[in-house]
Design a protein around this nucleic acid. Structure first.
Length: 463
DNA sequence: GGAACTCGCCAC
DNA sequence: AAACGTGGCGAGTTCC
């Protein structure tokens, strides 16, 4: 596939973006090296403990007897052989290469206590070897300098490496705390993160201009994920913890995958496994969906769904309704883009970039949205970087995560910075790019002075 | 000893 | 008819 920055606007964005990224790269991010060293050895101690716990089991001794050389419990191949060939268990799920999978989901399903130990070790190793190790390896005088590449990604998004600053743990509480605790502001400064809310969904609306989608975006009283949750589970949203969980199942298990081009069969399976706590295997059969204790399963059973089949059929209808009635203009835009691509061999982005070459149906609609959503962030990043250097602020931009900017803030400048960021990201950008037909919103998080990136708190940019 | 592959897992 | 988009990186493995 080929990419072109075929307008001077697109060229300038890449040119100025590269310069701005370069400045952030040179600034770098401060690392607490003493902490990293101590934390790595603490993790190593726990790994050794768990290891001896594992090696002490009958499960492991049988494994040792089954192999000629030494057992490596970190090896997916060896674990797969042991579970599915020696112990002759039925693989609940296969990998892309058609072998028995041994990922986290599968190991949880198998209900073998020793596999929990392996999962624990995997997690600790991930934290130590992928994140903390990278920080100590890449740091120079106590600062890491992640690269932000603008020339590597098919969609004209960015990527980051050495170390990758764009995949630092966030959702897993423990991993998040351990890893982010290592990243600090400059002495006497504080870290600030500003995120665009729902940027890709909003940018998609700039392409398809779907009336119903525009209503959802423009009216803060409405919530498409809540509506989808009510439709899928046939209940009225009441804001309880349970209902919030079901809303997130609807959002991340149906709405977003549908936008990206997934379909109801996968949605049903995925929702059942991830939010219903159900083994993947049983979904192949026409088995009951109330196995185990699970919120989602409970609700579905109450609604009269007795099998995966019936839930699938239900989601099939919802999918139909989703594209035919809820977002018909979005669906039309997807079809039109695909037809246009088939005639011309390329798709253009609203930001002046062109993707051409062999693309799949989903790519044709996903690439322009993903790319130009990032370009919004990039435009704001360039503008803020320019203003901050021109006015000799001591606050610096130090990184970017697709729809978020990370600042190292000099506290006396905080209020000025907050106003400026809000102005540039939500007001100036739509003035510069007339095709933005929706309001843009940002959310911010701020760490206390001298506190690590683990200590983010919600922060209002404007009063 | 390195390239290229698979698998698993982190982010948006 | 077909069926989820973009990355980086570590460990294990195989091949040259």
């Amino acid at each position: 596939m080929k990419l072109h920055h075929n307008t001077s606007d697109a060229y300038r964005l890449l040119h100025n973006g590269t310069l701005a990224m370069g400045r952030a790269e040179r600034q770098g991010i401060r690392v607490d090296l003493g902490y990293v060293t101590k934390e790595k050895s603490r993790l190593s101690r726990e790994i050794i403990d768990k290891e001896s716990e594992l090696k002490d089991t009958e499960f492991f001794k049988r494994w040792e007897k089954s192999v000629v050389k030494e057992v490596n419990y970190n090896s997916a191949v060896q674990l797969g052989n042991y579970l599915y060939k020696v112990l002759k268990l039925e693989p609940p799920k296969l990998t892309k290469g058609d072998k028995g999978s041994v990922d986290e989901e599968v190991l949880n399903i198998l209900k073998i206590p020793e596999l929990q130990t392996i999962l624990r070790i995997r997690k600790l190793k991930k934290i130590r070897d992928t994140y903390l190790d990278q920080f100590s390896r890449e740091q120079i005088d106590g600062y890491i300098h992640p690269f932000f590449n603008l020339h590597l990604v098919r969609t004209f998004r960015s990527s980051s490496d050495h170390p990758n600053f764009q995949n630092i743990p966030k959702r897993d509480e423990e991993a998040m705390n351990i890893v982010r605790r290592a990243l600090l502001p400059r002495p006497g400064h504080q870290l600030l993160e500003v995120d665009y809310s729902g940027l890709e969904v909003r940018i998609s609306a700039c392409y398809h201009k779907d009336e119903n989608m525009l209503r959802y975006i423009k009216n803060p009283a409405t919530d498409m994920h809540r509506d989808m949750m009510e439709q899928i589970f046939k209940i009225k949203y009441n804001g309880s913890e349970e209902h919030r969980l079901l809303r997130s199942a609807a959002k991340n298990g149906f709405v977003f995958p549908q936008f990206y081009g997934d379909y109801f069969v996968n949605n049903a399976k995925d929702m059942a496994c991830k939010w219903g706590g159900l083994p993947a295997g049983v979904w192949k059969d026409d088995q009951g969906i109330s196995i185990g204790a699970c919120t989602l399963g409970e609700h579905l059973r109450k609604q009269g769904f007795r099998s995966i089949r019936s839930f699938e059929t239900h989601l099939e209808k919802i999918q139909q309704d989703f594209w035919e009635n809820r977002f018909p203009e979005y669906a039309r835009w997807k079809r039109q883009s695909w037809n246009l691509y088939k005639r011309r061999g390329y798709v253009d982005m609203l930001t002046g970039f062109r993707c051409s070459g062999v693309m799949g149906k989903n790519d044709v609609s996903n690439y322009p949205i993903q790319g130009s959503a990032f370009h919004c962030l990039l435009w704001a990043f360039i503008e803020l970087d320019r203003t901050l250097s021109m006015r000799s602020f001591r606050t610096k931009l130090i990184g970017q995560i697709h729809d978020a900017i990370i600042f190292d803030v000099y506290p006396p400048e905080l209020e000025t910075i907050a106003k400026l960021v809000h102005e540039v990201t939500t007001k100036e950008l739509p003035k510069a790019w007339k095709w933005i037909n929706i309001p843009l919103e940002v959310e911010a998080e701020l760490c206390p002075v001298d506190a690590s990136w683990a200590e983010k708190e919600k922060y209002k940019l404007i009063a």
